[in-house]
Design a protein around this nucleic acid. Structure first.
Length: 297
DNA sequence: AAAACGTGGCA
DNA sequence: TTGCCAAGTTT
């Protein structure tokens, strides 16, 4: 084993041992976490900060402690419980994943990357994360935190590219330790989340600052991909429409939805999009609700 | 393969 | 106040 690599592992893992956050989806004192908890948390954490996930996660697991419990609920119940986490299609896909697990996997969360990857809403990152954290498999977990850490430490650049490159995967594989790969994944993610942050990295607290290529190069500023616009977009309109549906337990007349946005063309396009996505159902003439509102009564 | 897809906190 | 950013996936 390359001694430099070995000491890199040691330093990062030692730092993790001291600064690891005690999050509810993580196992206690060396024990593996519940795979369902890992899966639910990973869905919620897609593009959403830990602090906002915590309360919703707790309520979710109390309501649906197993995949079969969620599968027995309606999709609308899932969307409503999702609350204001954002990207409500994730709630729909989590519900669909639970249904697939209940019916095609005997209620057990799959334990291989390949099987996980088949579940709705589970992409490369999420499949790797569940396989690693829940089952200890030695798979490469590349999230935005890990990518940023590797890009800075090894490549000497401030920001990773928009999408994962083959070179990045190669590097990630080379850096991955033979043992405790799951701990390495969690540690490098945590380092990116707590120290090697996007905006104001806390290099003074970094266990590997002495070998960081970006730091050694004098922190050259990189080009940032252009940010997303928000005001006036369909996403904003969809968000407002969903908020009305979510907060009402009774079906909603179209007039109530019309009130959230002036531009009728855009508003109707967005409502049609939500219907198409399966986030909204037409329950009567000009009356709408979250999906499956009248099932199981 | 670029673009769509929510939300709220923080600088 | 505006813009950035957060454990991505899908089409």
């Amino acid at each position: 084993m390359d001694p430099q690599l070995s000491s890199l592992h040691d330093d990062v893992l030692a730092w993790f041992g001291e600064h690891r956050r005690d999050l509810p989806w993580r196992g206690r004192d060396g024990e593996r976490p519940d795979p369902w908890s890992v899966l639910v948390s990973e869905f919620m954490l897609q593009q959403t900060p830990v602090a906002r996930v915590l309360p919703v996660f707790d309520a979710w697991m109390a309501t649906w402690p197993t995949p079969a419990d969620l599968a027995a609920a309606t999709a609308g119940d899932a969307v409503r419980a999702w609350g204001r986490l954002g990207y409500p299609r994730r709630a729909l896909r989590l519900h669909a994943a639970a249904t697939a697990i209940a019916h095609q996997h005997a209620g057990r969360v799959p334990d291989t990357y390949e099987a996980l990857r088949e579940l709705p809403g589970v992409g490369d990152y999420t499949a790797a994360a569940i396989a690693s954290f829940a089952y200890g498999r030695r798979v490469l977990v590349l999230d935005t935190n890990v990518r940023r850490v590797f890009t800075r430490v090894v490549r000497g650049e401030q920001y990773p590219t928009r999408s994962v490159t083959a070179a990045e995967r190669r590097l990630g594989q080379e850096l991955m330790p033979a043992d405790r790969a799951d701990e390495w994944a969690a540690a490098t993610m945590e380092l990116g989340a707590l120290v090697c942050t996007a905006r104001a990295p806390r290099c003074a607290a970094c266990p590997i600052a002495d070998r960081c290529a970006w730091r050694a190069a004098g922190y050259p500023q990189g080009e940032q991909p252009k940010g997303q616009t928000w005001h006036g977009t369909d996403r904003q309109v969809r968000g407002r429409l969903m908020a009305v549906l979510r907060e009402s337990h009774a079906p909603v007349p179209k007039a109530a939805l019309d009130a959230v946005w002036d531009d009728a063309t855009q508003r109707d396009r967005c409502l049609a999009g939500l219907l198409d996505d399966g986030l909204v159902e037409l329950v009567d003439d000009d009356v709408f609700a979250l999906p499956g509102h009248d099932e199981g009564r």
